[in-house]
Design a protein around this nucleic acid. Structure first.
Lengths: 233, 233
DNA sequence: AACGGTATGATTTTCGAAAATGACGTTTTG
DNA sequence: CAAAACGTCATTTTCGAAAATCATACCGTT
């Protein structure tokens, strides 16, 4: 057997549609497809090398996630951004993430602790490579996502985890919006470290407090540095 | 202007795909497509009179809502039911619905009160027609949905309302599962009346308590009368 | 000049055929 | 006899052409 685990992940799903869905999601989150931008089939067809119907399937899936806006009979566009939407996403994230952290801290076993610690360790390692612009590093983004995922992973509800993941994606798009405009990145490393310690030491109240501050500071950052982009819609 | 509000709703979306999505959703929720049942294209094609790709788009959308299970390269099937899934859905509904009721009670204006009162009134009217089997009456289902929707409609977050709606659909499927097996329907009319009164009188704590009991009693009912259907998966 | 209606072009939406893949029974081999 | 390898069939997945729909510019009328 030649290779199966080592292969550089070109394809994510077995079907082309799932693959395109994944790639489109990435580009929308990274804002390389700008908010509000129309998604015309001719263009997408060339860019992703898939047919109308396959693209349509991918866009439909992303519309259900709130990353794409389907305007019946008039095609699709990247979901627009707005101050109101950012407020709602932040607010929903706090509600759900806080609850999931509590449950994870209550239910988490040894494997959970190990996952939290090791994902944070990995995140810090990657962070040292380019402390200035972490969001530009795809590996940092993955590691960052995995750390936050690990924190809540022991909550026991796949349903709530799926909802959380969608909100995380929508929030990450706003992070990218401000990342390029912000002069210096804020000290996320310290925040993550503190959250990890609170979680591992089973201090739920503190962990909740830190997570909420962490989420809300994202909001403040976006509002400060990309606020002008939010009202033009 | 001839008619626009009165038209008997045959079509829901302008596109065929949106229409099929809606019809499929209804059938899955009503369990006329049984949980776990494979959704083969030949069959669907004949039943809904649409082509492969259109059906595929509809199924993809429903998969994102958690009503359909997409098994890559092996087609789609109606999402299976399980005790664990029911627990998660109930639990997530309590978390979110409780919060939205609080916000609605805090923010609701005159129009909100009117909506709550009038949707309940309508529900009771319909209920009198066939008090034995309300779930078999499509109009009752719509009115029931609209009453609960009205209760939380003033919460101010379209994002959370969308999440709530998905969970409501998933829960309704379980209600249908037990409805046919339950000897006599429980007294929902009284519960709804009490919830309405608590909401209108801005008694948030009481409303929250009643809503939570209302949601959890659905769980108990399903577990009692359809429990045997949940463990066979 | 303003307005309403119509034709034209651009774009989306839908379709069924064709390719790809998985399931399963049969045969071959150790 | 068990297990692997093959071939066939059923089913899904993908494609590009064709139909439907929308946007826009043009023309005629008031």
């Amino acid at each position: 057997m030649p290779d199966s685990a080592i292969r550089p992940r070109k394809e994510f799903g077995k079907t082309i549609a799932a693959d395109i869905t994944h790639r489109l999601r990435e580009e929308i989150i990274a804002c390389s497809l700008a908010p509000g931008e129309p998604l015309r089939f001719d263009v997408l067809r060339e860019r992703f090398g898939a047919s109308f119907t396959t693209l349509r399937e991918a866009l439909t899936a992303l519309a259900a996630e709130g990353l794409v806006d389907a305007q019946e009979q008039r095609g699709f566009r990247v979901a627009p951004v707005s101050r109101q939407d950012l407020v709602e996403v932040t607010d929903a994230r706090v509600l759900i993430e806080v609850e999931l952290i509590r449950r994870s801290i209550e239910r988490g076993d040894d494997d959970w602790e190990i996952a939290v610690i090791s994902t944070l360790h990995r995140l810090k390692r990657i962070e040292q490579r380019d402390p200035e612009h972490p969001l530009r590093d795809p590996e940092w983004k993955i590691a960052h996502r995995q750390f936050h995922q690990a924190l809540v992973s022991a909550c026991g509800s796949a349903t709530l985890l799926a909802i959380r993941a969608e909100l995380f994606d929508r929030a990450e798009r706003y992070r990218h919006l401000s990342a390029n405009l912000r002069p210096r990145p804020r000290d996320k490393a310290g925040e993550h470290q503190a959250i990890m310690q609170a979680a591992i030491s089973r201090n739920a109240d503190l962990a909740v407090q830190l997570i909420e501050a962490h989420i809300r500071s994202t909001f403040d950052n976006v509002a400060t540095y990309a606020g002008h982009l939010l009202d033009s819609e």
